[in-house]
């Protein structure tokens, strides 16, 4: 793993040790799970709308605008609480294969969101209301569902390896 000294340094911070040896670790972890519920719960509704499976009575753009800010807000909370837990055993986490897979899936999930936002979403006026979303939107919805489920699985698996 690159920068071994850096991860050693992170792990040796007083804050890292404090989190690792006190009630802060389970506190951060429980908030992390709550945040994951909001990330996946909000994006799930968007994805199902993009797939044409649910909430067909609402414009896709409206569902997206009302829910994606919740996804990002909760994602920020998940990142902060996640970094807090990561710090306590940084050297072990960077080498943990489940953690590496989780990061890769996270990057892919964000890339998928970006592609949808900057390409597919631009043509949304043609399929916003009353018609089935185009294949590109459905692919984005399905990919998002699978990637986030994978992030959750790899994230939970991380705790079983360390």
């Amino acid at each position: 793993m690159p920068f071994p000294e850096f991860w050693e340094w992170v792990q040796a911070r007083p804050l890292s040790e404090y989190i690792g040896f006190t009630y802060w670790f389970p506190l951060l972890e429980s908030i992390h799970v709550l945040a994951i519920g909001f990330v996946v719960g909000s994006i799930l509704m968007v994805d199902l709308r993009l797939l044409g499976v649910a909430a067909a009575g609402y414009a896709a753009s409206r569902i997206t605008h009302e829910l994606v800010p919740w996804t990002w807000g909760a994602f920020v909370v998940a990142v902060i609480t996640g970094v807090g837990m990561f710090m306590t055993r940084a050297t072990a986490y960077v080498e943990n294969p489940a953690f590496q897979i989780k990061l890769l899936l996270l990057i892919l999930a964000c890339a998928n969101m970006a592609v949808f936002q900057f390409r597919t979403f631009r043509g949304i006026v043609y399929w916003d209301v009353g018609v089935a979303p185009p294949p590109a939107a459905r692919v984005a919805g399905a990919a998002s569902l699978l990637l986030w489920a994978g992030v959750v699985l790899a994230g939970r698996w991380t705790g079983h390896i360390i």
Partner: peptide
């Protein structure tokens, strides 16, 4: 881990 991940996905569905 698989069972727990499905449990967390259930939590996400209840949240949503």
């Amino acid at each position: 881990p698989i069972t727990q991940a499905v449990h967390i996905l259930g939590i996400a569905a209840v949240t949503g």
